[in-house]
Simulated assay, not measured.
Amino acid sequence: MYKIGILDSKHHSYVLQPDLEQQVFDGVAELQLFHVSSVAELPEWARACDGFISWHLVPLDAGALQQLTSCRAIVRAAVGYDNIDLGTAAGKGIQVANVPDYGTEEVADHTLAMALALLRRLPRGDQLVRGGCWDWRQVGGMPRLRGFNVGLLGLGRIGTAVARRFQALGCEVSFYDPERPSGWDKAVGVQRCESLDELLERCQLLSIHAPLNPTTRHLIDAEALARLDGKYLVNTARGPIIDPQALNAAIAANSLAGVGLDVFADETQRPPEPLASSPDVLWSPHVAFYADPALAELRIKAAQCLRGLLEQGHHRNVLSAVASA
């Protein structure tokens, strides 16, 4: 019998009962769900689990991983894995995998929804009518979608799905992603930019679909935001890709046409002013990934991946930094 721990946060938890995970392991493992803020809060016996399913608010940094005495595999229940120290995991012989193919449609749909709400000024229109005003002129100016240039920072699975949705509306799509091989742009029918500066210059709306790593942290800084003057910004990827202080300053200066944020650098506190209350900012609570079927898909695939790693020693979703160790 394997011992499996599910590490979920005591705040904003995703799993209430490990029923779906238990079905996947079907008698070959003893599963325990832990709602904790850190590994230090686990009982001593729990740190000897063979494998863990990790949710994003419980950090698995070097210190935390050193406390996992018997762990052979960790599956991050998400696409992103920035809460896990891959180098330390590799050094301890722990395989780490993620679930890169769940919720692609949901994040792409949510990105499009936020962008359309901003471009068509839906929050402003809703506010006017609730206040008794039906004068369409009070909504303000709007761009035409056909021919509108959308810039994508990242063209992986989700970025590609977003590109196709904007293309269906007649938008022109550009992207910057140094990881995509030559010809990817032709296959998808989008315009490649060779630098972030080129993308920021070309686009009228920037949508972020990059992973969070040392290269992308605060990649959208004060200088980048200045290049987006009068343009739109949407982030459904990871909050710290945008420098929060620089973004707050840009909102205070009214330099952006509109901002849609599903993620933020600190998702445990109310955002600072003027970001929190600005009518130019549309918020959602890190929900882009969500639909009832998507959450179930994520939990099942994470458990299937972990079982495969423990029983067979490999899985196609093992992250390269660990697989090569």
Rank of each mutant, 00 (worst) to 15 (best):
A226L: 14
V188A: 12
I208S: 02
E223V: 13
D229L: 10
L196S: 07
A222Q: 13
C203L: 07
T215C: 05
M142K: 15
Q204E: 06
Y176H: 11
S182V: 13
L212D: 10
N213R: 06
V139P: 09
Q191L: 10
E201H: 12
R144G: 14
P143S: 08
D229Q: 15
R217E: 15
G230T: 11
Q138N: 14
H218T: 13
A222C: 03
G147L: 09
K186W: 08
L228Y: 06
P143A: 07
A224E: 08
A161H: 02
R180V: 08
G189C: 11
G147E: 01
R180S: 12
M142N: 04
L145M: 13
G154D: 01
T160H: 00
A226F: 02
P181F: 00
R227N: 09
G154T: 04
S182T: 13
V162Y: 02
E179S: 15
A224V: 12
Q167R: 12
D197C: 03
E198S: 12
E223A: 15
L212P: 13
L196Q: 09
Y232Q: 06
P214I: 03
L145K: 11
A187H: 14
L152Y: 04
A163L: 04
Y176R: 05
G140S: 09
A224F: 01
I208C: 03
G189P: 05
L225Q: 05
D197F: 01
L152F: 00
P214A: 04
R192G: 03
L228E: 04
G141W: 10
L206W: 08
V150S: 03
I220T: 10
W134G: 05
